[in-house]
Amino acid sequence: MNERRKSVFLERQSYRRRRLVDTIRILPVVGALLWSVPLLWPTGEESGVATSDAIVYVFVVWFGLVVSGAFLARAVAKGNVGEDPEES
């Protein structure tokens, strides 16, 4: 049905934009992995990680995700407003 052929190779701008979208896609995966790290910490009174350290870790990850998310969202908005359909 779709007559329009998708081109295999793209201009530099479109290429960059797709890689940008790839970065946006991978970001939640990275976040999930980083937030899963606490699962591997030892628990218990003695050898366990202090709660204050855990708080600092979780919030640093959070802050990093927010900042990179904001950066990427701005970049993708600046790049192209009329986005092309479901690029992959």
Binding site: P38, L39, G48, V49, A50, T51, S52
Partner: peptide, 24 residues
């Protein structure tokens, strides 16, 4: 306050992995 957190009763890292993942 960070010091107070560590000395409180929730001061040690006590997370059940299955609950953490399931709740996320």
């Amino acid at each position: 306050i960070l010091h107070r957190i560590d000395t409180s009763k929730i001061g040690a890292w006590q997370i059940e992995g299955d609950r953490w993942a399931a709740l996320v």
